[in-house]
């Protein structure tokens, strides 16, 4: 194994150090490890180029002079190889390191780890004293995340089965735009190819593997598209008036627009999005919360209570 990695490292060094394109024959002559007849050297070199590209190293092909019957030449441009984060301070390094540490043990752990090594290789002392003591953390694993990220980057469609509200797995094909993690769930959003509308999916509701479909560069991701902004704008907010018992429903109080003291009870104004979710939340609080307005929500709560009595009676 080490013979091959030694050759790949030497090839990288030579292609990086050269100021002009190196031809294949120059490479075979000067870089250690290319042995055998011409054909096997060629094969070896083709594989090495592919391997370096797999590692994300860009090899430029050029130096062809039309006047002469030249060979193609190769080089790696230092500006494509080296990390350039612009002017960067010890504070920035501390912030980036903390950002990487948030993934400890979670979905992007390996990328975060190698990123951290690169930050520690920049020769800039991390200035931890400049930032407050914080321990940000993302705890979620996800097996399908890599596929979705690559699909967004390559602009390829993804295909998967997704559980509908009624728990029926249905096939979806989307042009993926963005991923996000919020309060314990992974989400991704994309343009649904059948419905021709933006749809957001929760990763844990995907019923199959996520697979890419078709060629790259099939669509353009809107610049700066924000998944959660889009998700939250799907349900316009409406206002409701609730009576809540003193000392109860702390979670509702926290987001109340206004609170009025009624003695044993408080009257609050609160914004809600999805009607069903809102009614579920109201009923979770049992007899400590009563809906006053709007009338249609109040009516639905009454219907639901009747249904609860009917099925449990």
């Amino acid at each position: 194994m080490s013979r091959k990695s030694e050759r790949l490292v030497n090839l990288t060094i030579a292609l990086l150090a050269t100021k002009r394109y190196l031809t294949k024959s120059e490479i075979f002559r000067s870089i250690e490890g290319y042995e055998g007849n011409e054909e096997s050297k060629e094969r070896m070199f083709e594989r090495d180029k592919d391997d370096l590209r797999t590692l994300g190293i860009e090899i430029e092909v050029g130096g062809l002079d039309p006047l002469f019957n030249d060979e193609a030449g190769y080089r790696i441009k230092p500006e494509n190889y080296a990390l350039d984060l612009g002017e960067i301070s010890g504070t920035d390094i501390a912030l980036l390191s903390l950002a990487a540490q948030a993934w400890n043990g979670a979905a992007l752990d390996s990328g975060a780890h190698t990123a951290l090594l690169k930050l520690k290789s920049m020769g800039i002392e991390s200035d931890l004293a400049a930032i407050p003591t914080l321990a940000p953390r993302i705890t979620l694993m996800n097996e399908e995340l890599e596929t979705v990220l690559q699909a967004i980057a390559n602009q390829t469609h993804v295909v998967f089965e997704y559980f509908s509200v009624d728990l029926i797995a249905k096939r979806r094909e989307i042009a993926p735009y963005a991923v996000g993690v919020r309060n314990g769930h992974w989400y991704f959003t994309g343009l649904d190819q059948e419905k021709k509308e933006l749809r957001t999916f929760r990763m844990d509701r995907v019923a199959s593997q996520i697979e890419t479909a078709g060629k790259p560069n099939r669509f353009a991701v809107p610049d700066g598209f924000d998944l959660f902004e889009n998700m939250d704008s799907e349900e316009p907010e409406k206002l409701a008036v609730l009576d809540i018992r003193k000392g109860k429903a702390a979670t509702l109080r926290k987001v109340a627009h206004s609170i009025k003291d009624l003695g044993e009870w408080d009257r609050i104004e609160i914004a809600y999005g999805d009607t069903e979710t809102f009614i579920d939340t109201v009923l979770w609080h049992l007899d400590d919360v009563v809906v006053k307005e709007p009338a249609d929500i109040r009516g639905k709560v009454i219907d639901n209570l009747k249904e609860l009595v009917r099925i449990h009676g």
Binding site: V9, A82, L83, K118, S121, Q150
Partner: peptide, 18 residues
Amino acid sequence: LQSPRTLNLEEQVALIMG
């Protein structure tokens, strides 16, 4: 070789989200 290499996609995403 003394400069660290450019960040790959996974590294970028990990840092941006972090």
